[in-house]
């Protein structure tokens, strides 16, 4: 009798476990079904291409991109001894150096002055964020005119004050700077919007109590605004860095990498190597370099921003 009861109990336990297991499986299938569309697309258009790029970087290819000869690390050796690619890397880093601080400082200034409660402030906010709605192609067209050697406003202005005209996009000394200026303008809208959002989420009590203590405007800016804004600032800086490394459109529209490869930024160099010279192997090696740079930037963001950025 006793044994029978025990047995029954065991059966019940097994049943219970079975049901629990089944439920677990159902929950797993359900979760996967909700995530499947994203996972498939990530695999096809992100993970597979990344692996494939790495694979291609070890091969020579024919014109259609099919692999022909395994060459090991030769593609990497080639690009790192190629003066054109090294120039491209140098230009890319200079471009990042010009555009990131410029974008951050100007948009921070704009966000701070647009954060005041004044009549008509929403109009100013709209104007400041407007470049976010202006595409790279359109912005390039606008700036192309401003940079125009004879009709452009910059040279007209120089002429008016009696200075010599500058070949903004054709002079190797100026081209990268000109492209950087127009890029800063293109980035301002987005950066401004994020920073303004960050400013508005700062607790106003902090300012009120500082005011009671008689703190000056600049003191409040330095001691409350900037520290409280640091997570947002950090995010914007990282995003700007990554965007700068991925710049393509304005190069294609304004300079096509010239003059003398001065503005041949990394992504433009990859594009040319792959889709104009059909050198998919070396182009892939360059893409791997780009990937490593972005990877390091993102890891740095997670590492440094760990305390500030919560994902779970």
């Amino acid at each position: 009798m006793k044994e029978a009861v025990v047995l029954q109990e065991q059966y019940r336990k097994i049943d219970f476990l079975k049901i629990k297991k089944k439920q677990k499986r159902i929950r797993f299938v359900k979760g996967m079904l909700f995530l499947l569309p994203s996972m498939i697309l990530f695999s096809v258009f992100l993970f597979y291409p990344m692996a494939r790029t790495l694979y291609l970087s070890f091969f020579l290819t024919d014109n259609s991109g099919a692999t022909t000869v395994f060459v090991g690390l030769d593609n990497f050796k080639n690009i790192f001894t190629s003066p054109i690619f090294l120039k491209s890397l140098q230009s890319t880093f200079l471009f990042v150096l010009y555009t990131v601080p410029g974008t951050i400082v100007i948009s921070l200034f704009l966000a701070v002055i647009a954060n005041e409660k004044l009549k008509g402030i929403s109009l100013f906010r709209m104007i400041f964020s407007s470049t976010m709605g202006i595409s790279v192609a359109a912005a390039s067209v606008f700036w192309m005119f401003l940079f125009h050697p004879t009709m452009g406003w910059f040279n007209q202005l120089l002429e008016a004050v009696g200075l010599e005209a500058i070949g903004w996009l054709t002079d190797p000394k100026w081209a990268l700077i000109s492209v950087s200026i127009s890029t800063i303008w293109m980035n301002l809208g987005f950066t401004f919007l994020i920073l303004l959002g960050g400013l508005q989420s700062i607790d106003s009590h902090l300012y009120e109590s500082a005011e009671i203590d008689g703190a000056s405007y600049l003191y409040k800016l330095r001691r409350i605004t900037i520290p409280m804004l640091s997570p947002t600032l950090f995010f914007v800086i990282t995003v700007s860095f990554i965007n700068a490394f991925q710049t393509f459109g304005q190069i294609d529209m304004l300079t096509r990498g010239g003059p003398q490869n001065e503005t041949n930024l990394l992504v433009y160099s990859i594009y040319q190597e792959a889709f104009e010279n059909y050198q998919y192997g070396t182009a892939s090696a360059q893409a791997v370099v780009l990937f490593v740079i972005i990877l390091l930037m993102t890891l740095l963001q997670f590492k440094l921003g760990e305390r500030k950025v919560h994902y779970q």
């Binding site: 929950r27 979760g31 994203s38 990530f42 790029t53 991109g65 991925q246 972005i294």
Partner: peptide, 30 residues
């Protein structure tokens, strides 16, 4: 939804942010 492997999948989602589309245009084009 709570299921096994959710955290791993979440990590994979985060990882996608480290892959720039510009670096994978060649295979994507193919």
């Amino acid at each position: 939804l709570e299921f096994k492997g959710r955290d791993t999948l979440f990590f994979i989602f985060i990882a996608t942010m480290m892959i720039p589309f510009e670096a994978s245009i060649i295979p994507n084009f193919q």
